[in-house]
């Protein structure tokens, strides 16, 4: 087995230009099985574009993405069987109850026993009481929670989360972080997460990739990156990079 086949995610030299704006300039990312990685950077750094390229929703101009040995875009469907995705800004299907919506996604992910998978996933994040609520009647925080449940239904090998706790109360956000850590530990899933909450990143991730102006500017453990930039934690690093990006 080659290293590329062993890693759950291998993105090589991704580049993306929208009209004349270079959003992503040669980003390479590798995530190993069970590894928890943070993708950080100030607004406009290219995080979301990168994530969407990793998920096959946007095609890179150049570069390649391979998930669990399946190259995108040709083998997107096979690759997505191993990926769970949730974003704080993404709603769920209108007019479906939470249980129904999760059942639909479980079916699309190829889960055999949909009802059991949905019940277990709701219990994991302690939101069984939302099962019979309509998705469009949920608060933004509840919707985010259900979105995370959706992403974990099929025990993916790679969990991709874009700002998952942005709209959550601190206590709910803590519950989500704890649930995610338990999920990754029990299933061996790898995690790739973007967040603006540096404490969350320090709690959840073992490695951090910092982006600025569409490029990787740091790739190491949170503590090592903070030390390299001369700070005690990631907050200072983030502030410095955001300031540099604004002036660039």
């Amino acid at each position: 087995m080659t290293q590329q086949e062993a890693d759950v995610l291998v993105a090589h030299e991704l580049r993306k230009t929208f009209k004349k704006v270079e959003a992503v300039r040669g980003i390479s990312i590798t995530v190993s099985p069970g590894e928890r990685v943070g993708l950080l950077g100030p607004n406009g750094a290219g995080k979301t574009t990168t994530l969407l390229m990793l998920l096959g929703a946007i095609l890179p101009d150049t570069g390649s993405v391979t998930i669990v040995g399946h190259r995108l875009p040709r083998h997107r469907s096979r690759a997505m069987e191993s990926v769970g995705f949730a974003a704080g800004y993404l709603p769920l299907p209108d007019r479906l109850k939470v249980r129904e919506a999760l059942g639909v996604f479980a079916g699309w992910y190829g889960v055999r026993n949909e009802k059991q998978a949905v019940s277990e996933a709701l219990e994991r994040f302690e939101i069984t009481h939302l099962a019979d609520r309509l998705c469009n009647a949920l608060s933004s925080g509840q919707r985010t929670l259900v979105g995370i449940v959706k992403a974990t239904l099929h025990n993916p090998r790679l969990l991709v989360l874009d700002e998952p706790t942005a709209s959550l109360d601190p206590d709910v956000a803590l519950r989500v972080r704890t649930g995610l850590l338990q999920f990754c530990a029990s299933t061996g899933a790898a995690l790739l997460i973007t967040s603006h909450d540096m404490r969350e990143v320090e709690m959840l991730t073992e490695r951090v990739i910092f982006l600025a102006n569409g490029q990787v500017v740091a790739n190491d453990t949170p503590a090592a990156i903070a030390a390299t930039f001369g700070y005690d934690d990631l907050e200072g690093v983030f502030m410095q990079l955001a300031d540099e990006a604004r002036r660039a």
Binding site: L55, G56, A57, S77, R78, M80, E81, V83, F85, A87, L90, L92, P93, F105, W108, Y109, G110, K150
Partner: peptide
């Protein structure tokens, strides 16, 4: 985006 990121 939810649909596009499933195996469908």
């Amino acid at each position: 985006l939810n649909v596009l990121t499933t195996p469908v």
